[in-house]
Design a protein around this nucleic acid. Structure first.
Lengths: 298, 298
DNA sequence: TATCTAGTATAAAAATTTGTTATACTAAAC
DNA sequence: GTTTAGTATAACAAATTTTTATACTAGATA
C-alpha cells in the first residue's frame, strides 16, 4: 500500500477513466491499471465495475474513496508539518553553556547577536561541562560555550575553538590599601585574606598551584562556591579574591569593586566554543559562532 | 511513501532500536536502516539522531510520529470498512423486476425466500425491462425478474432462464353467463366486450394476433393500461379481459373474479430470471434464483 | 453487418526498488 | 586493548513497478 496506488485510485474514481487518470498522473495507462488491480487485491474486493468501456466505483470503492482522500491529505499534512519544523529549526540556535560563561559572558554575546541577526532565536541552557557534552551528543543543544581551567576531556568527540582568554585578576573592595594600583607584583599578595571556591573547582586548583610556584604565602580565609557570594563578601571588606575578570566586570564598571592586574600571574580561564565532531554544526549555529569570533577578534 | 516505511519508522521510534524493530517486523536490520533513510530523504530531514549506538527521534521525528501512527490507523480502518461492506453485500440481494412480476409475482417469491433464508436481505426495484438491463450492467441490481410476451433483446449480454409460464386466462365477473364453466372454447369468446391494455403493450399485440388466428370476432370495448383498473371494471360488469393468471390470482381466490381457461388459446407470459452474462451472478443472488426454481419445479 | 474508435487488460521486457548477505564502522563495556 | 552491541554500507539477488507492444471489448460509424 502506498501513495501511488491511493492517488491512482482517487484520480481514476474522479475522472472515471483509467487512461485520463494515467495522463493526469504522467504514467502510462497499463501502469494505472495494474496499480488499481493491486489495490483491489490488497483489499480483496473489486473497487470498480468494468463494463467494457465504462468504469465506475463499486459500493466498496465508494466507501474507500473518502478514506483514501483523507489518507492522501494526511500525508501532505505530515510533509508540511515536518517542513515547518525544519524551517523553525533553521532559525533557532540552542546554546549550552557552563555556569560561568552562561551567566557572565553569554548574555552580552547573545544580546549583540540578536541585534545583528534578528531572524534568529536563541535559547541558553546552563549545565555542567560534563552534561553539556552529553546534550551536544544527544542533539539537545547545537553549540556549547565552555570555560576551562583544566584539561579538555573527550577531545576527539568535539571540535573546540578558543574564543578568548579570560584573565584572573585580584579583586578587592574600594577600602583596600591597594585600591589605587593599576597592577601589582605577586609578592604584594602575601598575607591577603583570600576567599576562594572549593577545591573541586579547577580554577581554585590552578590558582593555588600558581601562587605556590610564585612563592606567595597567602592566607585562605573563606571557602564558598558562589561567585556572587564572594563578590558580596569582598564588598563588605571580609576578604579579597582572585577571580575571572568577566565575573566582576559589571561591578568594576559601576565602581563597586576593584580588579587589579597581577604581573606575571599568567592565569586565564580559556573560553571555548564547542560542538560535536561527528555531525558538524548547524548553519544557524555557525552564524552565531562566527559573530562571536568577529566580536572578539576584530 | 508506503506503509512499510511508516511502520518501520513507528517501530524504530518506539523500540529506540533499528535491530529490534527489524526483528519485530521480520526484516533484516539493513532493510530497516534503508527504509528509514528513504523516509528521511522523502521528508528531507533527519528523523533520528544517530549517536553511534544510540538512536532517538529528532524534533522533526517527534512531530511526525503521531501523524505516522494516525496514518497507519487510518489504513487499518479503511481495510475494516471495505471488509464490512463486502460482508454486508454478501448478504444482500438486489432484485430488479418489471412491473407485472414485481407487483404480482415477486412479493410471494421473496416472502418464501425470506422465510427459508433469513440470513439474507432483499431489495426490489421496479423498472422497465429496458432500464433493468442498464441497471444490471451498471451493477445496480444483482438479478432481474422479467416477464416477456415478445422477443428477448440484447440476448448475448444476459443469461436468461425461464422460470415459469404464466398462462393468459379469460377473466369475467361473477355475473357473467360463463361463470360456471371450467374451460371454454375460443369461439365462445365471440362478441365479448374486451377490455385490453394499449397496443404498445406486447401482451395486447400477442392476444389480438392469436384471436385473429383462431378466427374469434371479439369486440374491443375499452383500452386502459392499468391492470388494477381493468380488474375493477370487470367486477363492475363493464366488460371482460384476457389477462395473466398471476395478475388475477388474488381476486380469483377470494371469489371477486373468475378466471376461465380457454382451450387451445396457447398464450403465456414467460417469466425469466436474468443476469449480466459478463460478470456472472452473486452467490447470494444464486441462492435466491435457486430457491425460486425449486419453488416452481418441485 | 462490418469497420473503426476509444478504453481497458494482458504479456513480456526493462528499469527501479527492495531485501539480503557479508562486511565495515562506531561507541560503549569489559 | 579486546570484545560486544548496534548501525551503516556495498554488492548482489529478488521482487516490484513501469513501459512497450498487443489483444480484447463495447459502442459508434458507415
Amino acid at each position: 500500500m502506498d501513495t501511488v496506488k491511493l492517488r491512482a485510485f482517487c484520480t481514476v474514481a474522479r475522472l472515471q477513466s483509467i487512461s485520463k487518470a494515467a495522463e493526469k498522473l504522467s504514467y502510462t495507462q497499463p501502469a494505472i491499471s495494474t496499480q488499481i488491480r493491486a489495490l483491489e487485491n490488497e483489499y480483496g474486493v473489486e473497487l470498480f465495475n468494468r463494463n467494457g468501456n465504462r468504469i465506475d466505483l463499486t459500493e466498496a470503492g465508494h466507501q474507500l474513496l473518502p478514506m483514501a482522500q483523507k489518507l492522501l491529505g494526511l500525508f501532505e499534512e505530515s510533509r508540511e508539518t515536518v517542513k515547518k519544523v525544519t524551517e523553525e529549526e533553521k532559525h533557532f540556535i540552542r546554546i549550552g553553556a557552563s555556569a560561568m560563561p552562561g551567566v557572565y559572558i553569554l548574555p552580552e554575546l547573545v544580546a549583540k547577536f540578536a541585534q545583528d541577526f534578528p531572524q534568529y532565536s536563541v535559547s541558553i541552557s546552563i549545565a555542567s561541562a560534563f552534561q553539556l557534552e552529553r546534550m551536544m551528543m544527544d542533539n539537545e543543544v547545537d553549540v556549547g560555550i565552555i570555560g576551562r581551567s583544566g584539561p579538555t576531556p573527550n577531545e576527539k568527540h568535539f571540535i573546540e575553538a578558543e574564543l578568548f582568554d579570560d584573565p584572573l585578576v585580584f579583586v578587592i573592595s574600594n577600602n583596600h590599601p591597594l585600591v589605587e594600583s593599576h597592577a601589582i607584583e605577586p609578592r604584594q599578595l602575601t598575607g591577603e585574606k583570600l576567599i576562594l571556591p572549593p577545591s573541586r573547582i579547577l580554577t581554585r586548583v590552578a590558582v593555588e598551584e600558581r601562587l605556590l610556584e610564585l612563592g606567595v604565602g597567602y592566607q585562605l580565609h573563606l571557602e564558598i562556591s558562589s561567585s556572587e557570594a564572594i563578590k558580596r563578601l569582598i564588598m563588605n571588606d571580609l576578604g579579597v579574591s582572585i577571580m575571572c575578570e568577566s565575573v566582576v566586570k559589571t561591578e568594576v564598571r559601576s565602581g563597586l569593586l576593584r580588579a587589579i592586574h597581577v604581573n606575571g600571574l599568567n592565569l586565564w580561564r580559556k573560553i571555548y566554543v564547542s560542538y560535536p565532531a561527528n555531525k558538524g554544526i548547524t548553519f544557524a549555529a555557525h552564524e552565531f559562532v562566527d559573530s562571536v569570533f568577529r566580536a572578539y577578534h576584530s
